Structure formats: C-alpha cells, structure tokens
Amino acid sequence: MSTDPTTTIGIGIGIVGLGKIARDEHIPAIAGEAAFQLRALASRSTTLPDVECYETLEAMLAEAADVDAVALCTPPQVRYALAARALTAGKHVLLEKPPGMTLSEVVDLRDMAAGSGCSLFATWHSRFAAGVEPARQWLAERRVRTVRILWKEDVRVWHPGQEWIWEPGGLGVFDPGINALSILTRIMPHAVFLTEAELEVPENRQAPIAANLAFTDRRGADIRAEFDWRQEGPQLWTITVETEEGTLELAEGGSRLAIDGEAVPLSAAGEYPGIYRRFADLVRSGTSDVDVSPQRHVADAFMMGRRIAVAPFTE
C-alpha cells in the first residue's frame, strides 16, 4: 500500500493571497473536494479561523510541514517569484489566471516543474464552465465559418478599487477577456491566430479598457471579439459559433449552451470544483498542465494592436 500522504490523508494545500477570488471560489472549492485539505494561508493582512496563517509564503514553507501544494491567488505581477520558491521547496503549484506577467515567466516555471518532479497547473477557470466541453465535442467534426465573442462587463462592479489591473502586467480589460480566449482556444477545432487588434486605453491608465480583435484559422474562419469594461446594465459573456451544420451559442461565460436555438442540458458542477479535481489528478500522476495559448493571444494583441487614447477612467 502506498505511503504517499497525498493518497492516504489528502493533499495538504496552502493558499497565498486572500482576495475576492480566493474567498469566493478557491476556499469553497477546496472545502468541497475530498482530495484536498486546507492547511495554511499566507496573507499580510487577513486571517482565517481554524487555519494556520502566515505573513509570507516563505514562513509557510518553513513552518507548515503538512503543506504539499500551494494555490497562488495573488496578482500576476508577483506570481513568478512565489511559484519558483514553492517549486524549489518541492511543492505542487496551482496558478490563478493569468499564470504570470509574461509568457517567458510561465515557460520557465513549466521547465522548473519538469525538473523538480512537482506538478504545475496553469488554470483557466472558464474552460471548466459546464458548456465548454460539450461545445468542443460538437465543433470537433464541423467546419467553423464565423465566431462572434461579446465579453462586456462593468469594471466598477467586478474590480472595485483594484489598481493593479490598470498597471503593466495587470492586463486591463484582458483580465476578463482572457477568459473568453481560454474558451475559444479550447473549443476551436484548429488553432487560431490574431490578424488585427484595436486597444482603447484611458489617458490616465496603462492598460486598455476595451479591445476589438480579429482572428482566423488555417481554414479562414472569421473570428471577432469585443471586450469592454464600460458595460452598464446586463453583463455580456457570449460566444456564438456559426458552422456549416448549425449554430452554437455559449452564454453566461460558458455555463449555458444552445445549439440551433435549443438549450443543451448541462451539469450543475461549478468551474473551481472542476479545477481542483483536475489539480488532484495532476498531483497524483506527477504531471503538469501549462497551456499558454490564451495568454499568447493577449501578448499578440499588445504587440500588434493599434492604441487609441480614450477618456480618463476614475472609480
């Protein structure tokens, strides 16, 4: 019988950073996944009852011997150094999206994980929305003609007071937009590549508040995406795919699926429970899952996008 503690008493996990995403998604998902036990938290300003709390990851790694893995829920600007420390200490690492500030950082972490024997998981939570895998399967044998993505939300509602998202590496409107790109790169039968980009950047910010993108694939599909953080009223997270054999629509971020106007029954399982089930499989098999394709498209947009100055943004 195996004596590996991750198979006999659960995978001990520590969370680094206790912001909104950790509280709303990671902690409930860990609590509902029998494979994991939340054993530690690293945060300079927040604590949790009944959980060992440390001010830094370094203190957690030094003192919490029962932590096998860490989930990094910090802004991406600081994630590389934290992940490198955890991997060096022999811990499995889960990265919130986007996995790092640059592609080079993420690739280096992937190589570091391969050399350490630890698992590294670059998560894309929208890929775990209930409609995404059924959509991928339906599109697999069909020729895509057009894709239309509308990803429009109110930044004041979803990111109030979060200044880091407007700084270099914070991505601006691509912070939610990368969710759409993670779905697109999962469901399309062939790889896509950017052909045009227009980025609207507030005069007082470093990152865009809106973006219009055009992509294609090897078969010449017409793919267009509109991202906007100025949306008031109903929030829009939809992807519509027209094929030669019908039309598919993912709505509400991928949680709803319709084909030719008919709703497809879906599982009620949430995104983050799916993430932690996948992470448990990776840890137990000693493998990693590091797909940088959504972030690569964002990098392409910043590299080739035409920038348009727009009105200053204030909270």
Rank of each mutant, 00 (worst) to 15 (best):
E163M: 06
E163H: 03
W164F: 15
W164Q: 06
W164Y: 14
W164R: 01
W164P: 03
I165W: 10
I165H: 13
W166E: 04
W166D: 08
E167H: 09
P168Y: 02
P168G: 05
G169Q: 08
G169K: 05
G172M: 13
G172H: 14
V173S: 03
V173R: 02
V173F: 04
V173I: 13
F174M: 05
F174H: 06
F174A: 07
D175F: 12
D175K: 12
D175P: 01
G177K: 06
G177M: 09
I178W: 00
I178A: 15
I178G: 08
N179S: 15
N179P: 15
A180C: 14
A180N: 04
A180W: 10
A180G: 15
L181K: 05
L181E: 00
S182Q: 07
I183T: 07
I183R: 06
L184W: 03
L184M: 02
L184H: 05
T185H: 00
R186I: 11
I187A: 08
I187F: 10
I187Y: 11
M188F: 02
P189N: 14
H190C: 11
A191P: 11
V192C: 08
F193I: 07
F193S: 11
F193M: 10
L194F: 07
T195R: 14
T195N: 05
E196Q: 14
E196R: 13
E196M: 10
E196I: 06
E196V: 05
A197H: 06
A197W: 10
E198M: 12
E198I: 12
E198W: 04
E200M: 05
E200P: 00
E200W: 03
V201I: 15
V201Y: 03
V201W: 07
V201L: 04
V201E: 04
V201K: 03
P202E: 15
P202I: 08
P202N: 13
P202H: 11
E203F: 09
E203S: 15
E203T: 15
E203A: 15
N204F: 05
N204S: 10
R205H: 13
R205P: 08
Q206W: 04
Q206C: 12
A207G: 07
A207T: 15
A207E: 15
P208Y: 09
P208E: 10
I209T: 08
I209R: 12
A211K: 00
A211P: 01
A211D: 11
N212A: 04
N212E: 01
N212L: 01
N212F: 06
L213G: 02
L213I: 00
A214H: 03
A214S: 12
F215G: 01
T216V: 04
